[in-house]
Computed example of a mutant assay.
Amino acid sequence: MTDSEIPSTIIYLHIPKTAGSTLHAIHNQLYSPNQLMHLKGDPHIDTAVAQFKQLDTATKQSIQLLTGHIEYGMHNWLPQPATYFTILRDPVERVLSYYYFILRTPIHPRHEEMTQHNTSIADFALHILGHNNQTRFVAGTWLEDIPCTEETLSLAKQHIEQDFALVGLSEQFDTTLLLLKHHFNWPRLPYYHSRNVTQNRPSREQVDDETLAIIHETQAYDLALYNFAQKRFEETVRQLGFPFWLVRVQHRLAQRAQPNLEKIRRVSVRHWLRQQWRKREATR
């Protein structure tokens, strides 16, 4: 295979609590195991990234989609061209979701610490959750734990402008999926349901003003990056116009209908099996 025949690689930066688990399940249906590489780390991904860098050239060239809690810069370790995408989430919603997810997940590395110390949302935002992680992921400064600055935010925006096919939004997940399908020529979108969703948590309207102010302070650059990405996202949708609007409507209807179709299929199979069993019993 010549260099010109080697397809470019898609790199998905999976920022925690931004609908990545649902998207990963979709990726597993779209790509075969030899095309997809999902780097894992619990709780840190440094080892997996180091191992990836040492892979042979042929293995790296076979990767069509590289995913994981990885930051910008992974393309430097690929022999072929690459393009990025990621999904951002409203920083306030992300903090709240992450906080209650840890409290309700006993296997999470920070669960015991937070429950024993009765950690508040404010303390979580100040001392446990990294400040402006979304910005640092996109800027490529997350693994080194470099503090976020105006320069970091500018770098993240520059990376988005130059190297990202799309920055989706968790709050518009269905539209994000359709844009990804459009950009990457995915043949289909399998039926999906949301995974790893934090259940029964208070809304932002139920959080006191002091706590919200602390979240805004600790995630100020993430808020700026989210607003930047949101404007780009809305402009992309606007430029695609009425045909894309129709696609969105069709997709929404298909998603709503799929659970009922699955029920019908299961009932039909049970009915057929019951009929076959009765025929078999009747011939005895």
Rank of each mutant, 00 (worst) to 15 (best):
Ile26Cys: 02
Ala50Pro: 07
Pro43Cys: 11
His69Pro: 12
Ile215Ser: 05
His69Arg: 07
Val207Phe: 04
Arg284Ile: 15
His24Pro: 06
Tyr191Ile: 07
Trp77Arg: 03
His24Ile: 10
Lys40His: 14
Ile70Leu: 08
Asp90His: 11
Ile63Cys: 03
Ala213Gln: 08
Pro109Gln: 03
Asp123Arg: 06
Glu93Pro: 06
Leu177Ile: 02
Ile107Pro: 09
Ala48Tyr: 02
Ile63Ala: 01
Leu189Pro: 00
Thr149Met: 01
Leu153Trp: 04
Thr9Pro: 06
Ser203Gln: 14
Leu253Pro: 03
Pro91Lys: 02
Gln80Leu: 06
Arg195Lys: 15
Leu179Pro: 02
Phe164Gly: 12
Lys157Phe: 10
Phe164Met: 13
Asp56Ile: 05
Ala224Ser: 09
Phe124Arg: 04
Pro147Lys: 05
Ala82Tyr: 01
Arg136Ser: 05
Ile26Glu: 00
Arg201Met: 15
Val138Ser: 06
His14Asp: 04
Pro106His: 12
Arg248Pro: 05
His271Gly: 10
Val167Cys: 03
Thr83Asn: 13
Thr2Ile: 11
Gly130Tyr: 01
Asp123Gln: 08
Thr86Ala: 15
Gln230Thr: 10
Phe233Ala: 11
His44Val: 12
Val95Leu: 08
Ala122Pro: 04
Ser268Asn: 11
Gln172Glu: 11
His108Cys: 09
Leu88Cys: 01
Val49Thr: 09
